[in-house]
Design a protein around this nucleic acid. Structure first.
Lengths: 337, 337
DNA sequence: CTGTTAGCGCTTTCAC
DNA sequence: GTGAAAGCGCTAACAG
């Protein structure tokens, strides 16, 4: 491996001079600068980032801790993070936790040892907040990508409540009175916020919230199938379903297909997230667009700003959702239910 | 930040002793060992991996260079890599190149500076091979996840040719004589190998290869739509289509839907990769299962083995594909075409 | 404008 | 079984 010492020796200058031209710091005569550059090119010398990090305390590394890159929600988010990081000269360490607190801990620990400059953390459980202390006390910047009730932290999230409101309100507006809500896990903060939006819409138009119509399961296809099955047992059954995410909606679609229940004719359906498959399944899914890529981008921007200026005030940035009308929710006109 | 020196001082021992207990190297009396461990826990000391790397030359970092995590093929692969890496104590640096040679170069350079222990590289263009030299001369291990005609490198890939053969042969077996092949970019090695399998199947049963039926475009939905449109202009049109990947097949499905061409009744369709959406779109897509997760796993295993023992002989590992029968290719019995 | 020097935090001979 | 000390490759005062 060729070191800074090699190029210095080759030219009879000091390593300090070479370091200066590499970093563009301090004054170096144009002449020496050119010579140094030439030798660097000739030797194919690349500065050792590790050594650099040891002295400067800047690793140019950012950790991204998410649930599972295999979940269709995350690739776009990760890409948003990556694009911003990369153009700012940072590299991305990817960590999949499967929402396990123990994994979150482990990764956080690991990233701290690796001296990352910052961490973008998706928090799932209140327990994850402890790890935030670990991060902060290691002097590492952190940005949360989940709703969090703590203004001493920078957090980026989409307007879950508003999105859920839009979805529910849409179903009501097209004539539905009995709207079920197939939610994610009860303790998830995402579930909590989406539930709020659902209730808000119902309250607004004076429909009483019927707890029978609110089910909980995992945020995936299996959860959706399970709840689809269960909701049919309620009497009277709902005429519309708001699924807390597209994967749950997908499960509903798959289960109803088996039962020959037609969407939207028999039951209307709205999802949440607008992942790729929402417009690929049949019927095309009406859903709430969740700005995944922008979430990643914004989180990365905030984090990098904080790395560059740690005194920056913390902020919460809320990104807007949007109703995307497709075929799974047909307009019912003047129809008695 | 608390350093190894702090814990040494706290106990009145030398840093060497502390280092020994952390790494489990050399002899340390059980008594000191316990005391050291206690102090470490008390101080919440974490070894600085950067400093460690500088002395040991082992960063415990692995770079993964792929086209685009947003392409549904990659998340599973990345997960396979990540799972193996993580359980072996390595962290993953994710790089998206969008198949641009310049990006490949840039990332390789970057990863070398960051002193990664190894790189898993997807090569697209022959030009990318130059970067392999850069990696090797930096003393970094590399494993390729693409077919490559060079036994001096370790490469992992699926049996593209066999998969394409299975797909084409299946279409022929169910009664089709005019099978079109909607391929990816002409110069891509994936395209080349899938084309070989297509031709092999045709040749085997004595069907003449008709170049009219072979089209090229990008490996995505837009490419599929374009080629679907073009293939319809051929006279006589094919009775079956083999799409070089599922995204192309998806484009075909979408375009045919617009034209009211029924799959498989009017034209049968087989894809390649078996990404998630293959069984979600309608008709469900018959396709070739490509072991994405295993590809990632195997690549990571090989890479880590090589990192641990660089003298290990290079090998090419070929993973099998498998035909997955679904609805887009219906069996035609004893039918004249 | 350029060189000298002291670390950054850790591992690793080499002594004792 | 333990410590002293060198050094990994680089940057950043501090001199000159």
């Amino acid at each position: 491996m060729t070191t800074i010492y090699d190029v210095a020796k080759q030219l009879g200058v000091s390593t300090a001079t070479v370091s200066r031209v590499i970093n563009g710091t301090g004054r170096v005569s144009e002449e020496t600068r050119d010579k140094v550059k030439a030798i660097i090119a000739e030797l194919g010398y690349q500065p050792n980032q590790i050594a650099r990090t040891l002295t400067t305390k800047k690793s140019k590394l950012i950790g991204l801790i998410i649930a599972d890159i295999t979940n269709p929600f995350y690739p776009a988010l990760a890409r948003g993070v990556q694009d911003v990081c990369h153009s700012a000269g940072y590299d991305l360490l990817l960590c999949n936790t499967d929402e396990k607190a123990s994994q979150v801990h482990r990764y956080v620990f690991n990233l701290c040892q690796k001296q990352v400059d910052g961490i973008i953390l998706q928090v799932f459980a209140p327990k994850d907040l402890e790890t935030i202390e670990v991060i902060k006390s290691a002097g590492i910047e952190v940005v949360i990508i989940s709703y969090i009730n703590d203004t001493s932290l920078t957090a980026i999230y989409s307007n879950e409540m508003e999105g859920a409101y839009q979805a529910t309100r849409h179903l009501i507006d097209i004539g539905h009175q009995r709207v079920a809500f197939l939610n994610g896990p009860k303790k998830s903060s995402i579930s909590v916020n989406r539930l709020k939006g659902y209730k808000k819409a119902l309250n607004e138009v004076g429909i009483k919230v019927d707890e029978q119509y609110i089910l909980y399961a995992d945020f995936n296809q299996a959860g959706g199938e399970q709840m689809a099955q269960d909701i049919l047992k309620i009497n009277p059954p709902p005429t519309a379903i708001f699924a807390a995410n597209d994967l749950i909606a997908l499960g509903v679609v798959q289960y109803f297909e088996k039962c020959n229940i037609r969407i939207p004719n028999d039951i209307a359906l709205v999802g949440f997230d607008d992942i790729e498959l929402a417009h690929l399944i049949r019927p095309k899914l009406t859903t709430i667009a969740n700005p995944k890529y922008e979430l990643g981008q914004t989180a990365a921007q905030q984090l990098i700003s904080r790395i560059q200026d740690p005194t920056m005030p913390n902020s919460h940035i809320v990104l807007d959702t949007r109703l995307v009308l497709r075929d799974s929710s047909l307009v019912r006109k003047e129809q008695s239910l």
